[in-house]
Design a binder for these strands. Structure first.
Lengths: 211, 211
DNA sequence: ATTAGACTGAACCCATGGGTTCAGAAGTGT
DNA sequence: ACACTTCTGAACCCATGGGTTCAGTCTAAT
């Protein structure tokens, strides 16, 4: 991660952006573990291996530290999930749609419910009262982005006759709901079995009749 | 709400439990609006029309104030939703299951997504890191309780031949997911159309074939 | 009338933590 | 050698707010 550019500080010779990202990552980890109010900037600095004034040198105050940390993590989660959804392209256009959907959806379920994704949603909701735009921004970068990519794939499946004609956005919403709902803050459940049941139900509702 | 028992204080002659409940209700309203850390006990006292030491007279500290306020509201939400689900008894055993499910599920959707229900979930998730048992308790009092009642009704429908044979718990989970997912922090959407689409998809997946 | 219990209001103590300041150190470019 | 930049670490200021104390008040019960 550290581009080997020397920067003039007495430490690890990371680029400024790397240093900034290290601060954001440490902040996200701490916020996720302790919450906004219970995390002090001092700890963030320590976690990132940096002095407190350095944090304020990169981020204006605690609030923007929170915003940028959460948004940065949301981008990671969104990108990961979208990449998985887009793999649905090659695999699902031939053979049984159940088998075609099953594997990527399982992977999506895991990615959508891993530690980081859960923390992102939690942090966005937790401070939705004070930072409503942050909640909207996170939703944009994760849920909506993923849903949009999924709708795109589903529309293609519908065109190929694998799904009955439907509103792809709504169908994507329903499939994501079937994946998300049962896991609502229960990391002990197995994402794979959840995913399989979701695909089963989804295809019974949305699959074309010649199955 | 005020049982007319005089209590010895200079005020409204409410029973002790009423006073306690007033504190919890005011606390819940403020916590929902501002969040845990941003709400000070002084404000809670003011909102409840009470002095600060009185709050500490009824609740041991801010933490238990939060816990009891949220749990109390969760009980209200759970009871309201369960009552609606149980009305599904009389209406859905005759006629088209689509029509039979539609009305109560719409009402459930509204109840499940009203202001208080949303606030309860938000507050539980927001402090899940610090009060994990509170999150579990809220889940118990709302989601699990409602799901259980719904599974009971669905099992009955399956026995009556209105649904194909299925695991009622899983079916209830899926129906609730279809109701909840699309609304994930979007109060602007209409619960009724969400509910209709959910029932539509649910019945296509779970309805018996002679529809 | 007196006692007992709950409430008030205001002051108070004190820990926490956001944000700043500053002197000095370390490295870079010229 | 020089200035420039960035970071450090520690001290510092100060607002917030949890929790307590206490003297005084009101009402009900005896």
């Amino acid at each position: 991660m550290g581009s080997e550019v020397s920067t003039g500080n007495g430490r690890k010779a990371r680029g400024r952006d790397d240093r900034r990202q290290a601060i954001l990552d440490g902040a996200f980890a701490l916020f996720a573990r302790r919450g906004y109010a219970q995390t002090c900037v001092q700890e963030v600095a320590q976690e990132a291996g940096v002095a407190k004034p350095t944090v304020y040198n990169h981020l204006h105050d605690k609030e923007s530290l929170y915003r940028e940390a959460v948004e940065s993590a949301a981008d990671r989660v969104g990108a990961r999930c979208v990449a998985i959804v887009e793999q649905l392209r090659e695999v699902a256009t031939d053979g049984d749609p159940r088998a075609g959907l099953g594997v990527p959806i399982r992977r999506l379920s895991r990615a959508y419910h891993d530690e980081e994704a859960f923390a992102v949603r939690q942090l966005a909701i937790a401070e939705a009262g004070r930072f409503p735009d942050l909640a909207a921004s996170v939703r944009e970068r994760t849920t909506l982005r993923i849903r949009s990519a999924l709708a795109d794939r589903l529309a293609r499946l519908a065109l190929a006759g694998r799904l009955r004609p439907c509103d792809p956005e709504l169908a994507a919403e329903h499939l994501l709901a079937l994946l998300t709902g049962p896991l609502e803050y229960r990391p002990d459940a197995d994402p794979a079995t959840i995913a399989d049941a979701a695909v089963e139900v989804f295809l019974r509702a949305y699959g074309s009749d010649h199955a």
